[in-house]
Each structure stands twice: as structure tokens, then as C-alpha cells.
């Protein structure tokens, strides 16, 4: 089947917490609440990586979490994007020199979109999701 730009109106997001402090989680929930209402663009939080188009990864990935992050990445059907939310995922944040880190997220899985902030504001997270949709369309070679 020829790819169509369907993702821009139906992006299902799976939230993966890899050792985050819950700050980013609270902001993600704020972004999903009625004030910003991402469902009007078809964005939906799903409970299983099998249903997801985008992985919203938070936290600096501790050693124990590395395997799980890889496994969830493999469980997500293609085409998919990975959005890294928060400073921890980008650089390790305040845990940057900890003995128990498997590195920031992009040492473990390829990341497409980075959303900075500790924690990032809901607007920033939504902006990241919009960027993810653009990336997915590029991956499909679909709409401009």
C-alpha cells in the first residue's frame, strides 16, 4: 500500500519511564489534560507499545532499565519515532556521572526528537509531538 500522511492526524503515544523522577510525567499528564486537549489532533496515550506510533521516553536509563528500553523499542511496530522528554534523557541531567547509568537515552536507542527542560513545559512537549509527526511523514516520503 502506498504510504499516506495519516500520521499527522492520528499519533498514538506510549509513555516509557526509564528511571525518571516523575517531574516529566506530571508535565506529560498536564499536556494530555483538557486544557491542551491533544486528542483534537488525534493524539492518544495508549497502554501498550504494540499500539504506539511514538515512544515518549523520560529519565536517564539506569543499567537495569537498559534491556527493557531496548525490548520496548523492538515491540513497537514500524514506522515509529522516539521522543526524549527532559534533560535527563538528553545528557543524564543531575545524574550524569552516576555509576548506575547506562547512559542517556541516545546511547541506548536512537532518538528522533529531543524536548529540553527539567521538566519541560506542556507546550514544549506538544511541540515535540508536532515535530515527531513531521519526522514520520518524512520517513514515509509522504506529504511535505
Amino acid at each position: 500500500m502506498k504510504p499516506t500522511p495519516s500520521f499527522n492526524r492520528s499519533l498514538w503515544v506510549y509513555h516509557l519511564n526509564s528511571g525518571s523522577c516523575n517531574g516529566c510525567e506530571i508535565e506529560i499528564v498536564a499536556a494530555l489534560a483538557p486544557r491542551y486537549d491533544p486528542e483534537r489532533f488525534g493524539v492518544k496515550l495508549v497502554g501498550s507499545p504494540r499500539h504506539a506510533d511514538a515512544l515518549l521516553v523520560t529519565g536517564p536509563v539506569p543499567n537495569k532499565m537498559k534491556e527493557r528500553v531496548l525490548r520496548i523499542m523492538e515491540q513497537t511496530p514500524d514506522p515509529k519515532v522516539v521522543i526524549c522528554v527532559g534533560t535527563c534523557g538528553e545528557s543524564g541531567g543531575v545524574y550524569y556521572d552516576s555509576y548506575s547509568l547506562a547512559g542517556p537515552i541516545d546511547d541506548v536507542i536512537p532518538v528522533d526528537i529531543y524536548v529540553s527542560g527539567c521538566p519541560p513545559r506542556p507546550e514544549a512537549i506538544l511541540h515535540g509531538v508536532v515535530k515527531a509527526i513531521e519526522k514520520l511523514e518524512q520517513l514515509q516520503g509522504g506529504a511535505t
Partner: peptide, 28 residues
């Protein structure tokens, strides 16, 4: 449901878009 929760909600054709997208996805 969205209107009752003081949201705007998805367009009426949202399920059709969802189906079209799901048909494009990998079937694991």
C-alpha cells in the same frame, strides 16, 4: 465525550483516520 469533559475533541472522522493509519503499520 470530549464536549462533556470541556474539551474540543477529535474530528468526527477520527476513527477513519485511525483505521487508515493502523493499516499502514507493521503487523507484529
Amino acid at each position: 465525550t470530549a464536549h462533556m469533559q470541556a474539551r474540543i475533541g477529535p474530528p468526527l472522522r477520527q476513527p477513519f483516520i485511525d483505521i487508515r493509519k493502523l493499516l499502514l503499520k507493521e503487523n507484529i
